[in-house]
Simulated assay, not measured.
Amino acid sequence: MSSALFGTVSKLRTGYDRDEVDEFFDHARQAYEGRSAEPMTSGDIQTATFELVRGGYDTHEVDAALDRLEAAFVARQRQEYVSQHGQESWMTALAERARTLYGRLGRPAGEKFAPAPRGQVGYDKDDVDALCERLVGYFDRQEPLTAAELRGATFGRARGADGYAEAPVDAFFARAVEVLLGVE
């Protein structure tokens, strides 16, 4: 099935399984064009994962394509919503989604998310809190921030109580990306 949608890595390195990626993007194209019985959402794209195999597709290329695909799905969702309910209604719904983020953003530094389990590695609290502050700046003071910047953010590593558990942080910023994409 591999149709070389993306560049591949050498047989000595790992990349995403070509067949899985090809199948996913084929389904995404069909869903976007309305030719699939199984719908796809931007959330499905955000949570897509692929097996790592030797000689697979270049992960950076695929991840960049997933980002563009997610943006296309959000843009289409926005277009459909606006055509049915109007621009003002879209912005109101988007503002409501943004408000769901505020509870966590208002928490004190170092307490915004659950700590990483004892002895396990999590995200550095200072790094995560700094990105949360940028998000507050975006919402409250219209400071520049893009969905791509949120997606591309990386956090240092910390163990146990010195770090945040990764899953809640990832889920939170995935929602924040959706909000920013809805505005962009």
Rank of each mutant, 00 (worst) to 15 (best):
E51H: 08
E51Q: 13
E51Y: 04
E51F: 05
V53T: 14
R54F: 11
R54D: 08
R54P: 02
G56I: 12
Y57N: 13
D58G: 07
D58P: 12
T59Q: 15
H60Q: 13
D63P: 05
A64F: 09
A65P: 01
L66R: 01
R68F: 01
E70Q: 14
F73W: 07
F73P: 00
V74S: 00
V74A: 00
A75Y: 01
A75Q: 01
Q77C: 00
Q77E: 13
Q77W: 03
Q77F: 03
R78P: 02
Q79L: 06
E80C: 00
V82A: 00
V82T: 06
V82E: 02
S83E: 04
S83P: 01
Q84L: 14
Q84D: 11
H85W: 04
H85L: 10
G86A: 11
Q87M: 08
Q87P: 03
E88F: 09
W90T: 03
W90C: 03
M91K: 02
A95T: 14
A95H: 10
A98L: 13
R99I: 11
T100F: 01
T100M: 03
G103R: 09
G103Q: 02
R104F: 06
R104E: 01
R107Q: 13
G110A: 06
G110L: 04
E111T: 06
K112M: 07
K112L: 08
F113P: 11
F113N: 06
A116Q: 08
P117G: 05
R118M: 07
V121E: 06
G122E: 05
G122Y: 07
G122R: 04
D124A: 14
K125E: 05
D126C: 03
D126G: 04
V128E: 05
V128C: 06
A130N: 05
L131N: 01
C132F: 09
C132A: 09
L135N: 07
Y138D: 08
D140V: 15
D140W: 06
E143G: 03
T146G: 07
A147K: 01
A147P: 00
A147I: 08
A147F: 02
A147L: 02
E149H: 12
L150N: 04
R151C: 02
A153G: 11
A153R: 01
R157T: 14
A158F: 10
R159I: 15
R159L: 15
D162V: 04
D162R: 02
D162A: 15
Y164K: 08
Y164C: 12
A165Y: 12
A165T: 09
E166V: 15
E166T: 15
A167P: 15
P168N: 10
V169G: 10
D170T: 12
D170R: 13
R175I: 07
A176I: 03
E178W: 01
L181Q: 09
